[in-house]
Amino acid sequence: MDIHLSNNAQDVPFSFIVEELIAGNIEKSPAKYAVYKKMKGVAAIDLPDIEAAVTLIFGQGKLTIEAGIVQNPAIIINTSADLVTDLNLLNIRWGLPYYFDEAGRRVLAHIFTGRLKIKGMFLHTVLLTRLTIIMSVM
């Protein structure tokens, strides 16, 4: 596992949360680690309510976390700090995020009501699915 926080990211406390969550998840789950090793691309999480944004640059077994939104991410998740944890609670079934239980329906409701916006959701489904898997604590 090679997760690196850039110097700038070390000034953003949310970076450490993301790092710890991903590291904890892939350490505990060989399946999630396998997904992590395949990931290539750039995704960002933007939480305007706490003025925190991080960009995750995946390079097949390597992850660099940068502060802010950089490198034109394929995926940008924009929501509030209290809702972003709902993404972490998505269950993974048959290797995919599951949207047909309470946790899944809650995330869908956030999307439909605009409280959770995901740029690139339809264009970069593989990256988004993989990101969801490695971020899920379930």
Binding site: F14, L47, A52, A81, T85
Partner: peptide, 10 residues
């Protein structure tokens, strides 16, 4: 202050 937010904000 929401505790979750407080953690995310350090």
């Amino acid at each position: 202050l929401d505790a979750t937010k407080a953690l995310m904000q350090g």
